[in-house]
Design a protein around this nucleic acid. Structure first.
Length: 877
DNA sequence: CTGCGCACGC
DNA sequence: GACGTACGTGCGCAGT
């Protein structure tokens, strides 16, 4: 077997990774994106290439021997961003853990080290592969040396052999240098011959083969201008050649034999990945038996496995973890319960726990305080088993989310590791994932779950202190914690669904879909998979020759906005649009909902209270926050949502323009406040102010545009986003936004101030002190910075609206209880609450619900709530 | 199993 | 000039 040598251009790959990936942070605030990208690439190479020898070359410093030839070499190049520089030492640490040699040499560039070693490998008859993002390296390609260049992203590469180069670039590896010498390279400040680009350079080299030959026969060059340019800049060209030529005789101290690759250090790598927060990469490290070593390194925790719950095991202020397998706590079963307090840690197997009246009594005792992770999950799980858990006064999940919603993993092990408590493994390591998900044998299970309870107990103080330091204690204690119990109630109650009605709609849709599909196949002249944009594209844009409006990464775009522009060009288009619309209803809403109805005809969604960056809730399995309403056809889905009891109605109450009212309040804009106090139609008012016209002069078109601008303000979209939604140019969109801000100077001031504030503090807050960190607000990358700026303007608006409706839910929940009404909340859809109630309570509710919602906070503008009721959700409009 | 294109809501 | 652009969830497809 021949040896295989892999040579990596360290700086180039780190650069690529840095710009290809979002600026990730680990829990210590260190940027890790370049290291992460580098790591994925290394893992891929090791998995795919099986190298016997390997080395990563780095540039040694700013000055190189090339600067002697040409002082301005690489002049004008942007300084390496500090966010990247700080990652380079980590990168070296990473390579050490991988046991991969790395090397740098004063005055030489990584290219030269690679070139030298590549030639040595070649002479030894080894297989050599060079990996870089720099096309200059292509000059090294030969029969034994291939060069892989990164394409988009970081793990995608394009591998060049001599044949592939001929085919793709029409030149040979030797000619790469001459090509560069003619073209120059602005990023390295290499002059080349002005006016000669890639096309001309290739043409010249095809004709004359080498640079020397071009100048030797310059008289034969066609084109007077070109000839002149070549003659004037001959010297530049030859100097450029010198600059781009990679040195293959660099005086390096290492030999290729010394850089053998023997495999990585599993322990070191594991530890490093954990430190860096690369949890997803840990299971790509090979060696199952080595995993055991990590296991063994966890400090012992003494756990008592309980076969009968005794009162002596239970105490006030106890951490409680109820563990289940899988995500959906409406159907999953409990695998075990652990409790931890200052006197001990216990594991109670599921069957023991559920049969114990001692435990039940303790769980239901309000005075016995419990600390948990995810109170909602624990509450719903216990409700399903007839236990009404009370006395939860700490929820680690909610606390962690409030401290930093941007953390992507709010599970006990992740939070624990972030806070420096590493004596627990990740769920994925214990349970596996996907199809391999399973409960381990009891010792491992009880140990893991017990550790969770132990950690909840241990971390409580730290987390509470963080909340207090952030001035978020009230947000946590008076808003999110009560809310989570209310949500548990709503989820457990569920919404009733008229299954027959859904099925009926499904049958009707099925017939129509079949017919439309038939029509489309006839219009297309062939059958294909209509649900595949990849197959639809060629039919529309090649076979039917329709104009291409937009492309996606993988082919033609066939999205609705594209198709709408083609609607009058071919009858097939409107059929496709209809097919898509109905197909969506069928698959997502009819079939999707039917799949999750339980045997009592109810649907139980799960509200995720610890996910969105703004403080809103989200809803899953099913998502009941995106049931169709805009188009009549879809809206009919709502007819399938019904009250759970005969003689009851659904009652829906929604805030009118809550975000714009919040904006008026936060920005304290006189005109906007006035508009709401006068109960004006806000979009018409905006149109009057933006277009400087009187009310009776506002056209539908103007109102529509004003509405889109308001929408943009509320959602923090860019001029680009606004231009898309209005079908106008970016410039026009920008004009609209500017005129809006001129009309509402208070808003303008708010926008300026909040961005400044965010820059200074690093985060923005809402009315109730919800936080969102915006590390990108000081980024030198325009896109990242702009996005962060829009987020700074938008999050306080959306987040405050979220705060308000959450508070309203709490107020309403307790008011309904106090008034001893049977009415109960079922759903929340961001600015709207869905309630079910017996008919005789409706008159009370009309007064009470709107009142509670409107009075929950007091702003500089009134909050206005509209409501409606009916026999189905559809009718509550 | 994952990423993509698409579509639904606020 | 920056080439990607509110927040979410879920579906089917296609490639691994």
């Amino acid at each position: 077997m021949t040896n295989k040598l892999i040579l990596i251009d360290g700086n180039s790959i780190a650069y690529r990774a840095f710009f290809a990936l979002p600026l990730l942070n680990n829990d210590k605030g260190v940027h890790t994106n370049a290291v992460y990208g580098f790591t994925t690439m290394l893992l891929k190479i090791l998995e795919e290439e099986n190298p016997t020898h390997m080395l990563v070359a780095f540039d040694a410093g700013k000055t190189t021997f090339r600067h002697k030839t040409y002082e301005a070499y690489k002049g004008g190049r942007q300084k390496t961003p500090p966010e990247l520089s700080e990652q380079l030492p980590i990168l070296r640490e990473l390579l050490d853990a991988f046991n991969i040699s790395h090397y740098e040499l004063p005055l030489y560039e990584a290219d030269d080290i690679i070139g030298t070693l590549a030639r040595k490998g070649e002479q030894a008859n080894w297989e050599v592969k060079v990996i870089s993002g720099d096309r200059d390296l292509l000059q090294l390609v030969s029969e034994r040396v291939t060069v892989a260049l990164t394409k988009k992203g970081i793990t995608n590469v394009e591998t060049y052999t001599p044949e592939y180069m001929k085919e793709k670039m029409e030149i040979s590896p030797e000619q790469v240098i001459d090509l560069k010498a003619l073209m120059g390279d602005s990023s390295d400040n290499i002059p080349g011959v002005p006016g000669v680009g890639e096309k001309t350079a290739v043409k010249l080299l095809k004709q004359f083969t080498t640079l020397e030959n071009v100048f030797a026969n310059v008289q034969e060059v066609s084109g007077k201008k070109l000839k002149e340019k070549l003659e004037t800049h001959q010297e530049d060209a030859f100097m450029s050649k010198e600059l781009v030529t990679i040195h293959v005789d660099t005086p390096i101290e290492t030999t290729i034999e010394q850089i053998g690759y023997q495999g990585y250090d599993v322990m070191k790598l594991n530890q490093l990945f954990r430190d860096l927060g690369f949890h997803s990469l840990i299971n790509r490290i090979e060696g199952e038996e080595d995993k055991k070593q990590v296991e063994d390194t966890l400090p012992d925790l003494h756990v008592t496995i309980v076969d009968q719950v005794e009162e002596s095991m239970l105490a006030n202020h106890t951490a409680l973890v109820i563990e289940m397998l899988g995500e959906n706590y409406h159907e999953a079963s409990i695998v075990g319960i652990s409790i931890a307090h200052d006197k001990g840690v216990y594991f109670i197997p599921a069957d023991v726990a559920l049969q114990s009246s001692v435990l039940k009594q303790w769980l239901e005792d309000e005075k016995q305080k419990k600390m948990v992770f995810d109170a909602k999950k624990a509450t719903v799980l216990m409700k399903r088993h007839g236990i009404d858990i009370k006395g939860i006064d700490f929820d680690l999940l909610i606390a962690s989310y409030l401290i930093n919603p941007a953390e992507s993993h709010h599970d006990i092990p992740s939070i624990s590791h972030r806070l420096g408590e590493t004596s627990i493994r990740y769920d994925e390591e214990v349970y596996g994932k996907g199809a391999k998900l399973q409960v381990p044998e009891q010792d491992a299970l009880s140990d893991h779950i017990a550790r969770k309870a132990h950690i909840v107990n241990k971390l409580k103080q730290t987390v509470v202190q963080q909340l207090k330091d952030n001035d978020q204690w009230e947000l946590y204690h008076d808003l999110e914690l009560p809310l989570t119990l209310i949500l548990a109630d709503m989820e457990h109650t569920g919404v009733s669904v008229d299954v027959d009605r859904l099925k009926g709609m499904g049958e009707g849709l099925q017939k129509r879909l079949a017919q439309i599909q038939q029509n489309i196949y006839e219009l297309a002249g062939e059958t294909f998979n209509l649900n595949s944009p990849k197959q639809l594209g060629p039919i529309l844009f090649e076979k039917l020759q329709l104009p291409v409006i937009k492309k996606t990464k993988t082919g033609y775009s066939t999205s609705a906005d594209v198709l709408e522009q083609l609607e009058d060009k071919h009858p097939i288009i409107s059929e496709i649009l209809l097919y898509r619309q109905l197909g969506k209803l069928q698959s997502t809403y009819i079939e999707g909902l039917l799949k999750v109805v339980d045997d009592t005809g109810k649907i139980h969604t799960r509200f995720n209270q610890a996910l969105t960056q703004t403080g809103r809730l989200s809803s899953t399995e099913p998502n009941l926050q995106n049931i169709p309403i805009r188009l009549e056809e879809g809206r009919k889905i709502r007819q399938a949502f019904i009250p759970s009891q005969k003689g009851w109605k659904l009652f829906a109450a929604d805030y009118s323009q809550i975000e714009l009212r919040v904006l008026a309040h936060i920005a304290n804009d006189e005109k906007l406040i006035q508009a709401f106090n006068d109960h004006e139609d806000i979009h018409t008012k905006t149109a009057m102010d933006v277009f400087h016209v009187e009310k009776d002069q506002v056209t539908d078109q103007m109102r529509r545009q004003a509405k889109a601008v308001n929408f943009g303000i509320v959602y923090g979209i860019s001029d680009f986003g606004l231009s898309q939604s209005l079908g106008i140019t970016r410039k026009e969109a920008k004009t609209f936004i500017d005129r809006y801000l001129q009309s509402y100077p208070g808003v303008q001031t708010y926008m300026d101030d909040i961005v400044q504030d965010a820059k200074q503090k690093g985060y923005v807050t809402t009315l109730m002190n919800r936080r969102r960190y915006l590390p990108d607000i000081t980024s030198r990358n325009f896109n990242r910075r702009s996005f962060a700026e829009r987020t700074a303007m938008n999050t306080p608006i959306q987040g405050t609206a979220a705060d308000i409706i959450k508070k309203a839910m709490i107020d309403l929940y307790y008011t309904l209880a106090e008034e001893q009404l049977e009415a109960r909340m079922l759903l929340q859809v961001h600015d709207e609450l869905i309630i079910e109630a017996p008919e005789h309570e409706l008159d009370t509710l009309k007064e009470l619900v709107a009142n509670v919602m409107e009075q929950t906070v007091s702003l500089h503008v009134p909050l206005v709530v509209d409501y409606a009721f009916g026999d189905t959700w559809y009718d509550a409009k």
